[in-house]
């Protein structure tokens, strides 16, 4: 279990992470979402004691990361795929990390096989493709067979087969009761992998919800109506104060009303309906919606606040 309480990181007068509090529970994959520069990586670095928070605390299974006696065996982390010396082979890299906690060579071979790097394990990591680097990052995270995994953008640079592999790996690891915390800026990917989502924007908490709840939160519920008499139906709906957001020759999209109401209105006026489809916003849209709201209606921000987060786009 990962717990953040009032986590804040300030660089000079720029706030990268602003008073974040959340809990990541074991047994499920928790997605950590936000646009680029939202503060995801900074938050993860604070969880791992690499960056010191300006305020607040972060604990893993009740302990601050620095106080964990055998960190690799408790927490596996992949902050960026390229946390490896380019002149060293994947195998030597893993052996060096493993040695700090007395992890046997056998386990090193095991994770190399697990991530599918067996053939290139003795080659210099500098020549690795992005996908191979990602797999090596995963291998180092799994090295100590930890109960908690913290992965920053693990699917970046992977081919479709690799993405599918990660997705299944994370789900199976979660099913074993581990705590899995995975960041991404791609909602569509998280929708397939995670069951809980923590969404941040500009360093602030936007939503801490299950995937279903997030879809429901979207304001974009619309009904798509196809009728040969769209002009008349628009008039009728407008009379009731219902907004028609778009229309084609015979298709209109209506928001702020249910398909039942629209159907009844049309029936009373004798307008034939060819199609009447409630359209739930996709998760992608829901995500865009809530992150845009955060940007537009956030707390009174200094004008430079957006720059502040954008400036650390790698965070």
């Amino acid at each position: 279990m990962i717990e953040a309480r009032g986590l804040t990181k300030r660089y000079g007068d720029k706030i990268a992470v602003n008073d974040l509090s959340f809990t990541v529970r074991p047994g499920i994959v928790t997605g950590f979402l936000g646009p680029n520069g939202a503060g995801k990586s900074t938050t993860m670095r604070m969880l791992l004691g690499l960056d010191a928070p300006t305020a607040g605390t972060a604990t893993i299974d009740g302990l601050s990361y620095v106080d964990i006696a055998a960190p690799l065996r408790e927490v596996g982390a992949m902050l960026e795929a390229r946390a490896i010396h380019t002149g060293r082979s994947a195998r030597s890299h893993l052996l060096a990390l493993a040695a700090t906690t007395g992890i046997p060579t056998r386990r090193v071979e095991e994770v190399i096989d697990l991530v599918g790097l067996t053939d290139v394990a003795r080659k210099r990591a500098g020549g690795f493709s992005l996908g191979m680097g990602q797999r090596l990052g995963i291998a180092s995270a799994l090295l100590g067979n930890p109960g908690t995994l913290i992965l920053d953008e693990p699917v970046n640079g992977l081919d479709p087969e690799g993405i599918l592999w990660i997705r299944n790996l994370l789900k199976s690891l979660a099913a074993e009761g581990r705590t899995i915390f995975v960041s991404s800026h791609l909602m569509s990917e998280m929708a397939l992998t995670a069951s809980h989502l923590i969404v941040i924007g500009r360093g602030r908490m936007i939503a801490d919800v299950s995937v279903q709840e997030l879809t429901a939160m979207s304001s974009r519920d619309q009904v798509r109506v196809r009728t040969p008499d769209s002009a008349r139906l628009r008039e009728l709906l407008a009379r009731d104060g219902i907004v028609v957001t778009s229309h084609g020759d015979d298709v209109i999209e209506v928001s702020g009303s249910s398909s039942t109401d629209i159907g009844l209105i049309a029936a009373r006026a004798g307008i034939p309906l060819i199609e009447l489809t409630p359209q739930q916003a996709s998760l992608e849209e829901a995500f865009m919606d809530i992150t845009r709201d955060a940007v537009e209606f956030g707390t009174p921000q200094r004008p430079d606040a957006e720059l502040a987060t954008a400036g650390r786009s790698t965070t």
């Binding site: 960190p71 927490v75 010396h85 890299h93 700090t100």
Partner: peptide
């Protein structure tokens, strides 16, 4: 500095947080 320039230092310090 080889560890800092390649990012290796973050792996090193994650393993040895003290």
């Amino acid at each position: 500095t080889g560890e800092y320039s390649t990012g290796m230092i973050r792996a090193t310090l994650s393993a040895v947080p003290r």
